[in-house]
Design a protein around this nucleic acid. Structure first.
Lengths: 245, 245
DNA sequence: TCGGACTATTGATCAATATCAATATTCTGC
DNA sequence: GCAGAATATTGATATTGATCAATAGTCCGA
């Protein structure tokens, strides 16, 4: 068997514990199919409509997945973080349904659908991890559907801010994601200006602090009240209320 | 090994071809863990916030998955059709993040997370089918995010109508789904009245026909133009345009 | 076949948020 | 440190779709 140059680090397809139970040959076989790639901020891994051949596992950094209307309106479907998969939507599809663009420096492993299929068939432990990852992503997506479908602008922004907390950093520390106002707007189905106004209002009410390139949550409890329902969908019961209009 | 009473029919966990390659014992083992259940229209399989123990595979009928805000605002996250899984979002979660309610008479198989885990680990063919199903559901969810985030009311309704076509029936026949105006509104993040107005307008413009309990598409092409982008996300390239406001 | 309840349609008005526009701030390359 | 560009803030106004309300159609049981 060929030697392996692929590093073993945290990512759904690469994580150490996945190798438990696999033979040395199997491990090498898996590593052989993974192609490790680097991307710079603003660089696209692939674009909406491109023929879909590879699936990507994000090993380091953050991505935004976006879809556009022909007139330029753009929607962020998801922010992907290390450990997540992208492009698996096309497991049976022909073209990528979204553009994947690096927000930070990014390390990703790519693997062809065919290879993935073979590996899954041979390695139940890996397929279990893939299923766990996918189900979490589906949960996230449904959470965004909730936000987009039935929340007001302040509720959306508060939901967005709270959803960033688990992405890293202590609850009262700086949030670990640097999106522009425009990008936040594109995620929440709002305009830049509305996001700016809502955030200004939150600052005025001392719910958050916001300087150049950072946001800090000052009053998590009141943000949660504004949000209306819990951010972590699989969690504690609902809280306080505010009507849509 | 115990005898099997579970019927073998179309559903992700039950489908015939899954059994190809499995030993008789394995097949029996799988069937043993599946619990077949029947539901009537309006009956709930489970409710948002219930402790999540089972995963469901929908074998026959249609379901709506909804999430509510404490003040009663409700969002339909997804319409599930035969072959789809539900509750897998909670593979690692503790409570169901949505309510699953039958729209028609429903047959579903349920299986505990633990059993599913064991079966997946033992049967790569099944995990492959689960992954395919999940990735399709993720694709659907992202498509709804697009609709909710960047479309106008007429665009949303046209997208909704077009998305029903592949669910069955020929392109110019009656649509196979009977949702009330209220339910369509809850799916698209609109109100009953707005849906009604848009549909009335579509009828006036001879794009659709709509009688008691049925909708028929008369002019697919113009509906697609209104929709702006394609319904089938993994499909042909974009078409004509209309701006959001 | 009637009566009540639910669902859909239609109209008038309102309000949240988009749009348009101007200014301020921050970032970048030189 | 400066000039230009990009990003963010703030204000004035417009517009989509919500809300409130009344009417009409449909379904269902008695």
């Amino acid at each position: 068997m060929a030697t392996c140059s692929c590093e073993v680090k945290a990512c759904v397809l690469c994580e150490d514990r996945l190798y438990a139970g696999l033979s040395k040959d199997q491990i090498c076989q898996l590593r052989e199919h993974l192609i490790r790639e680097l991307y710079e901020p603003r660089e696209a891994l692939f674009r909406e409509g491109d023929p879909a051949t590879y699936l990507f596992a994000l090993r380091h950094g953050q991505l935004k997945l976006t879809s556009s209307m022909p007139d330029g309106r753009q929607q962020i479907l998801r922010i992907a973080v290390a450990g997540q998969l992208l492009g698996i939507e096309t497991f049976k599809g022909r073209t990528y349904p979204f553009t994947a663009e690096a927000l930070t420096d990014v390390v990703a492993c790519k693997i062809s659908h065919d290879d993935l299929r073979n590996i899954i068939e041979a390695n139940p432990a890996i397929s279990l991890r893939v299923i766990e990852t996918l189900s979490h992503e589906l949960d996230q997506a449904e959470s965004l559907i909730r936000d987009l479908g039935l929340k007001t602008a302040p509720e959306k922004v508060s939901s967005f801010l709270l959803s960033l907390v688990p992405l890293g950093g202590d609850p009262n520390g700086d949030l670990p994601l640097r999106l522009s106002r425009r990008e936040i707007a594109e995620m929440l189905g709002l305009t830049e200006e509305t996001v700016s106004r809502v955030m200004a209002d939150f600052v005025r009410r001392k719910l958050i602090e916001s300087g150049r390139g950072f946001i800090r949550i000052l009053d998590r409890k009141r943000l949660e009240e504004i949000n209306g329902i819990d951010v972590n969908t699989t969690g504690s019961p609902p809280r306080a209320v505010s009507a849509k209009r």
